[in-house]
Amino acid sequence: MSFNNLDQLYRQVIMDHYKNPRNRGTLEGDVMSVNMNNPTCGDRIQLQLQVEEGTVTDAKFDGEGCSISLASASMMTQAVKGKSIDEAVKMSGAFSDLMQGKDIDEDIDFGDIQALQGVSKFPARIKCATLPWKAMEKGVDEQ
């Protein structure tokens, strides 16, 4: 597959998650909830995780922002479901490395998240992509 075709495919994946976000909404009951925003561009996210016995059993988000931040939130909530908190935090660190153009652990299956790799070429947009991941890290740290 050529670079242009791959780039187009990645754009389609990002737009699909933006237009048809997975896990958008709110959770009821005892959940970890974090609100974060990116004052530079106005993105804001409310992330909720339901954690039972150290495992993320459900994840939802709500908020406003650009296609990159909302697509990233959609992808992240899908990716962390069923993972232990430690696995989710490890994935978040690897995602941060991906956004900075660093080599990442081959053992981590990013799935659709790989589509955000091109964001690393646009430093001003990295904060958009990492906002939901930073919200998760903040929530775990505060718990």
Score class of each variant (00 low, 15 high):
residue 1 M to Q: 13
residue 2 S to M: 11
residue 3 F to H: 12
residue 4 N to W: 11
residue 4 N to K: 13
residue 5 N to H: 10
residue 6 L to E: 01
residue 6 L to D: 11
residue 8 Q to C: 01
residue 9 L to M: 08
residue 10 Y to H: 06
residue 10 Y to L: 07
residue 11 R to Y: 08
residue 11 R to F: 01
residue 14 I to L: 01
residue 16 D to V: 08
residue 17 H to S: 11
residue 17 H to D: 13
residue 17 H to Q: 12
residue 17 H to N: 13
residue 18 Y to C: 04
residue 19 K to C: 06
residue 19 K to F: 10
residue 21 P to G: 06
residue 21 P to C: 04
residue 22 R to M: 00
residue 23 N to L: 00
residue 23 N to S: 07
residue 25 G to C: 05
residue 25 G to A: 06
residue 26 T to K: 08
residue 26 T to Q: 13
residue 27 L to T: 03
residue 28 E to A: 09
residue 30 D to A: 14
residue 31 V to F: 08
residue 31 V to G: 09
residue 31 V to S: 08
residue 32 M to H: 13
residue 34 V to P: 13
residue 34 V to T: 14
residue 36 M to Q: 12
residue 36 M to I: 05
residue 38 N to P: 07
residue 39 P to Y: 09
residue 39 P to N: 03
residue 40 T to E: 05
residue 40 T to D: 10
residue 40 T to Y: 02
residue 42 G to P: 03
residue 43 D to C: 12
residue 43 D to G: 05
residue 44 R to S: 06
residue 48 Q to S: 06
residue 48 Q to M: 09
residue 49 L to R: 09
residue 49 L to S: 09
residue 49 L to K: 07
residue 50 Q to D: 10
residue 51 V to G: 07
residue 52 E to H: 12
residue 53 E to W: 02
residue 54 G to L: 13
residue 54 G to D: 03
residue 56 V to T: 14
residue 56 V to K: 11
residue 58 D to N: 14
residue 59 A to V: 10
residue 60 K to G: 03
residue 61 F to V: 09
residue 62 D to L: 11
residue 63 G to E: 11
residue 63 G to M: 07
residue 70 L to R: 13
residue 71 A to S: 14
residue 72 S to L: 04
residue 72 S to Q: 07
residue 75 M to V: 00
residue 76 M to D: 02
residue 78 Q to Y: 08
residue 80 V to P: 05
residue 82 G to N: 00
residue 84 S to F: 01
residue 89 V to E: 04
residue 91 M to I: 11
residue 92 S to L: 07
residue 94 A to K: 02
residue 95 F to L: 09
residue 95 F to N: 04
residue 97 D to W: 02
residue 101 G to E: 00
residue 102 K to Q: 10
residue 103 D to S: 14
residue 106 E to L: 08
residue 108 I to M: 05
residue 108 I to H: 00
residue 110 F to A: 10
residue 112 D to E: 14
residue 112 D to H: 03
residue 112 D to K: 05
residue 113 I to V: 10
residue 115 A to D: 11
residue 115 A to R: 07
residue 116 L to C: 06
residue 117 Q to G: 00
residue 118 G to Q: 00
residue 120 S to R: 11
residue 120 S to K: 12
residue 120 S to M: 14
residue 123 P to T: 10
residue 123 P to M: 09
residue 124 A to E: 06
residue 124 A to F: 03
residue 125 R to C: 01
residue 125 R to Y: 01
residue 125 R to Q: 05
residue 129 A to M: 11
residue 130 T to I: 04
residue 130 T to A: 01
residue 134 K to F: 08
residue 134 K to E: 15
residue 134 K to A: 12
residue 134 K to H: 10
residue 134 K to G: 10
residue 135 A to Q: 02
residue 136 M to G: 05
residue 136 M to S: 11
residue 140 V to L: 13
residue 140 V to I: 15
residue 141 D to R: 11
residue 141 D to A: 13
residue 141 D to V: 01
residue 141 D to Y: 10
residue 142 E to W: 07
residue 142 E to D: 15
residue 143 Q to G: 14
residue 143 Q to N: 15
